[in-house]
Structures are given as C-alpha cells and as structure tokens.
C-alpha cells in the first residue's frame, strides 16, 4: 500500500507546476499508470481524495490512463500488446522480445484555467 505516498507526490507536483501559472487554477491532473506498475488506480484515487478533501485542491480532478503491457519484437520490430504474459511475437513467432510499455508511473499533463473567486487554488495552501 504505497499509493498514499504516490498521491502525495502527485499533489506536490501539481502545486509546484501551479506556481508556474500565476492567475490560473489547476483543474485536472493527468497520470499514466502501466498495468504492471504495481499501483492500484482505485487505491490511488481514494488516497488522492483523502489528501485533497477540505483543501484548496478539493475539486482537482484526477484522470488516470492505464497503459497496456506492450512488447517489441527484436527480430521483426513488431510492437504488440501482451495477452496472458505471452511475449512471443504474434507476427513472426520469434521469442526475442523486449518490454516497451506497462511500467509507466508518469505525470502526463495539468489542466489549468483562469481563476474564479470560488475556484480551487484561491485559498491558502496547506
């Protein structure tokens, strides 16, 4: 259960990025989480809600894109989504393949918009 620590890192990154956009309020933070990143999106959402509740970030939306477990064939270059851990190339049947996706734990984007008096980011940060 390390999702709380990850939620705190996400929130810290939002606050850090928000400082670079004076006069604007953060609305949505976009994450990319790989299927094999060992991070549970539901647990992360739960933690994120818990640490933003009753703060200036309460209405900040968390959008999570799940990235599939993907491999590339070293023989023919074909890229494919791995089903049931079968890493054999479906195109040329070669076994020499490498993982190219599925371990992401990335901050993709932050959406900000002009401040409104009642919007997030107007109270002092905690």
């Amino acid at each position: 259960m390390h999702e709380m620590g990850i939620a705190c890192e996400v929130l810290a990154a939002v606050r850090s990025e928000a400082k670079r956009h004076p006069g604007k309020a953060p609305r949505k933070i976009g994450l990319r989480i790989g299927e094999l990143a060992a991070v549970d999106p539901d647990a992360l959402r739960f933690c994120f809600e818990a640490i933003t509740r009753d703060t200036d970030m309460e209405s900040l939306e968390l959008e999570i894109e799940i990235c599939p477990f993907r491999f590339r064939c070293l023989a023919c270059g074909h890229e494919f989504v791995v089903q049931n851990y079968d890493s054999q190339c479906p195109q040329c049947a070669d076994m020499k393949t490498e993982c190219i996706g599925g371990q992401e734990l990335d901050l993709a984007y932050l959406e900000v918009e002009d401040h409104e008096p009642s919007a997030v980011g107007t109270k002092s940060t905690q």
Partner: peptide, 15 residues
C-alpha cells in the same frame, strides 16, 4: 481550459 504537458515521472524526486 489550458492543458500543460508535464511528461515527468511521479516519483521524479525519488528517481
């Protein structure tokens, strides 16, 4: 709404 690309690791400080 203005979308700012971040393209960084969540655990970038640890990394």
């Amino acid at each position: 709404m203005n979308r700012v690309p971040l393209e960084q690791k969540v655990l970038s400080e640890n990394d």
